[in-house]
Amino acid sequence: MNLRVPYPVLIAALAVTVALLFGLSLLTGSAELGLGESLSALFADGGSGGSGGGNVVAIVMQEIRLPRALLALMIGASLGLSGAALQGYLRNPLAEPGLIGVTATASLGAVLAIYTGISAAVPLALPAMALAGAGLAVLLVQLLAGGRGGALTLILAGVALTSLAGAMTSLALNLAPNPFASLEIVFWLLGSLADRSMIHVQIAAPFILAGWLMLATLGRGLDALALGEETAASLGVRLPLLRLLAVVGTASCVGASTAVAGAIGFVGLVVPHLLRPFVGHRPSRLLLASALGGAAMLLLADIAARVLAPDEDLKLGVLTALVGAPFFLWLVVRTRRRLA
């Protein structure tokens, strides 16, 4: 099935949606702020870097809502982009960013930071250890998968690594020194954008941008790969380089995302799947569309989390899975109907 929408129109529509949702995210929160008031406060002095007791509205906008909206944008785009890249590379619509083990190892790094109490002593230890976990995942996956750039060995290595990291995370929960530590670990694993600061944005941004740049180069190679690894190689695609960029790019942006927000599932799986028919199933065109779609979906989910249960601190990862899983089931049913 191909849904004919001109590519520039699709991209423009998605970009406008992202911009609107970004604005809506800035206007959503427990403090009742007017539209004009909020937007002017966003650019006012007295927020971050201002002296104590400054403009409260500016502080709310600049230090609470702006980082939250920025992170939703960056992380959503990372999940959508890397999901599209990995589905293209593995030629499998069921691939998702966590498949290569990065999410699990980054989570493990963060869990260890909480478990050992380092995160309480050193504020930035948690994202740092999560990033280290993601880095380790890249090294291990590349080593395990071997040098020739095959897709199957990459999946196997990723599955093995995910299981191992999952087991170690369970072990940390099992041996947690007290119930509060276990609760903190569990809550962190659910994924959330609440109470993040501009420092989190600053930590994640370089890795996320670097990851985006790497993944953005993959388009043509992924198109050629649709004809199989041999044909792609015969067309001049350097498969080992392609795989390296796909793995390191995904690890960089998804690892950094997991480091600041925890594991957020389903966005990277569902968004490329949903948008694929609109780009004529071409992996190269899916990259940008999926990045924008991912950003839109996560912004929307984060707004919904705040609107639906303002007092409950509904975790973002829970919400994306709650919405994503039934949606995915619907996709499965629809696919089956088409095949029948």
Binding site: M1, N2, R91, D223, A224, L225, A226, L227, G228, E230, T231, S234, L235, R276, G280, H281, R282, P283
Partner: peptide
């Protein structure tokens, strides 16, 4: 090189395929 396996992973159009 024309491979023996007639693999096409995605439902791209024939024109897109030939364009590769």
């Amino acid at each position: 090189f024309l491979a023996q396996e007639r693999e096409v992973a995605w439902p791209v159009t024939v024109k897109t395929l030939v364009g590769l």
